[in-house]
Design a binder for these strands. Structure first.
Length: 562
RNA sequence: CGGAGUGUAGCGCAGUCUGGUAGCGCACCUGGUUUGGGACCAGGGGGUCGAAGGUUCGAGUCCUUUCACUCCGACCA
């Protein structure tokens, strides 16, 4: 295609709102246009990249036996009520009414719709397994959209759903999808890692995320330096030994004035923070109720809120105000699991199991207990609720764990019957018995991938597209279109490359050389051929975008070499 | 949700304190020169100053309300 005919509004200036490199370059190079908070238009170049990514996704999924469909974007709320998610999904779900006052939602994900589709057409085990997917718009009313395409409200996602007769077959498909996803991200030229993950609002068990490694990633992932273990911080686990106090202090209440933080308590009583029970009180929200919960962790740990939330099966955890604390009978700075108000649920971190000689708040102003053994506590239960720290030991091999940042581009879940049960999606097995489908669900953030590719592949001049994602394979740059020989040679090379099957962009604009080069570097097409001054000796230049190294080649050899 | 900030030409901004004909750079249009690293000269087009209401002879500027957008945070007891 000719540059002069394409809408590619490049810009020298960085738009105000962009902070992330990918966002800046995608805007400046004319791939996307901002239309509102978390909403973007795709211009021709952006649409080409989007289509390339979709194509790779589709090819790999189809060859793995999945089938593409397209579901309605607007979903009747009744389906969401049946699954129980109409209330549970929270404010991210955009709800609205039609003229007849019926409730609808804009689909943030399509489990309900897909289950409904299959329920109506699949009745027998003979029709299974089945893997259906779509590449379609999603809408999530994010609390705070940011980072351009990375966290928009409207975005393009591939979502797939598989249906099986039993767990075993669902797991087979899960691993097939894991492999298929690896193929997709490898083809797109990404450096990624597969990690264990929390299942979040989708529900189900056994989920894995595909993380593109990048400093700007929003997720913290924990990886092992000596084995393959990797997990999102929300789900990461590690080895631990329960803390034991060397000093055998007898149990007693002690006066601890002005010691409201772990540091102060630890210093005042001369005990290691690891032996201090830090209490984080939260309100756990459920569908129709809420409860105050005390999460008890070691003084040197931090609460992992997702794990904590899962430990009490809550929808969400929220902070307590000063007033709420008081109403619950809790005293900030002096909370403890021993002799706590009865209505309060206590969850203790697993790391405390069998621990002895601990310190905790006495639920009484300016007092702490010392010499507590965990066995003294009643009506408590143990869960893993703290964030793994760098330097903790890997559960698999004992190696050191460390943090890195990742962009979540894919997530696969073993759902089981989480949706088929409530939606009564059943089939008849070989004994003629009704059974709910056993399901898996698989997502890829297609529009987010555009940003992820650039986050991982750019320099200080602009984008560097990977082979399969690039809007064009090669750009033909005519240095000066008023030079007839350059112009005619440019056109000829352009036609030749096209006939060889390349996607070619011809920069035939009436601009100066430097201007065109800046645009080339900003847009980031993998290779360019420059038809310029060297043509007088019968040469052209071939340049690679990633290293910007150029090779001078005689015209006839150039065509061969390509 | 909490905190901070910004809305003036397509983009980036000045003008607001101290009310008096709406400005600059980039981009755009016309003509000419230039043509290997975002050129130059000359001429030109483009604005409900986020919106509504108020004060005033007069409001981009002062007052009230409202909307939108951006950034930071959502830790700890």
């Amino acid at each position: 295609m000719r540059f002069s005919n394409l809408l590619i509004p490049t810009s020298k200036e960085t738009p105000n709102e962009a902070t992330l490199q990918s966002h800046i370059y995608l805007l400046r190079a004319g791939f996307i246009q901002s239309v509102g908070s978390g909403l973007y238009n795709y211009l021709p170049l952006g649409k080409m990249v989007l289509d390339n990514i979709s194509r790779v996704v589709k090819e790999e999924l189809d060859s793995a036996g999945a089938q593409e469909v397209s579901l309605g974007f607007v979903t009747p709320a009744s389906l969401w009520r049946e699954s129980g998610r109409f209330e549970k999904y929270g404010k991210e779900l955009l709800r609205f009414k039609d003229r007849k006052d019926n409730d609808f939602v804009l689909g943030p994900t399509h489990e309900e719709m897909m289950v409904n589709l299959v329920k109506q057409s699949v009745k027998s085990y003979k029709q299974l397994p089945l893997n259906l997917y779509q590449i379609n718009l999603k809408f999530r009313d994010e609390i705070r959209p940011r980072f351009g395409l990375m966290r928009g409200r409207e975005f393009l996602m591939k979502d797939g759903y598989s249906f099986h007769i039993d767990e075993e077959d669902m797991q087979r498909e899960f691993y097939l999808m894991q492999e298929t996803y690896s193929n997709i991200f490898t083809r797109l030229g990404l450096d990624f890692r597969i990690v264990d993950a929390d299942s979040g609002a989708i529900g189900g068990s056994g989920s894995k995320e595909f993380m593109v490694l990048a400093q700007s990633g929003e997720d913290t992932i924990v990886v092992c330096e000596s084995c393959e273990y990797g997990a999102n911080i929300e789900a990461a686990v590690c080895r631990y030994i329960p803390p034991q106090n060397e000093k055998k202090e007898p149990f007693k209440k002690v006066y601890t004035p002005n010691a409201t933080t772990i540091e102060e308590v630890s210093a005042f009583l001369d005990v290691d923070p690891v032996l201090c029970m830090k209490v984080v009180a939260k309100r756990a929200l459920y569908d129709e109720s809420s409860a105050v919960v005390m999460f008890v962790i070691r003084g040197n740990d931090t609460l992992q809120e997702i794990k904590a939330c899962n430990s009490v099966d809550a929808n969400e955890l929220v902070d307590l105000s000063e007033e709420e604390l008081e109403e619950s009978g809790l005293i900030a700075g002096y909370m403890g699991p021993l002799k706590a108000p009865e209505a309060i649920r206590v969850v203790i971190d697993k790391r405390f199991q069998d621990a002895t000689g601990l310190v905790c708040g006495a639920n009484e102003n300016e007092h702490h207990y010392i010499g507590i053994d965990i066995s003294m506590l009643e009506n408590v239960f143990f869960e893993d609720i703290v964030a793994v720290k760098e330097g903790d030991k890997c559960v698999c091999c004992g190696g050191n764990l460390y943090y890195t940042k990742g962009i979540e581009v894919g997530h696969i879940f073993q759902l089981g019957t989480r949706y088929s049960d409530p939606l009564k999606a059943e089939f008849l097995d070989e004994n003629g018995k009704s059974k709910p489908f056993v399901m898996g669900t698989y997502g890829i953030g297609v529009s987010r991938l555009i940003a992820a590719i650039i986050e991982q592949n750019h320099d200080d001049k602009g984008c560097i597209w990977t082979k399969e994602s690039a809007p064009f394979d090669i750009e033909v740059i005519i240095s000066n279109i008023k030079d007839e020989m350059q112009y005619e040679t440019g056109i000829k090379i352009y036609e030749q490359l096209k006939s060889k099957g390349f996607k070619v962009l011809l920069d035939d604009r009436k601009e100066r050389f430097g201007f065109k080069m800046k645009d080339y570097e900003l847009i980031g097409i993998p290779r360019a051929v420059i038809i310029g001054q060297k043509l007088e000796e019968g040469n052209v230049e071939l340049i690679d975008r990633d290293d910007l190294v150029s090779k001078t080649l005689p015209l006839d050899i150039f065509i061969e070499e390509i």
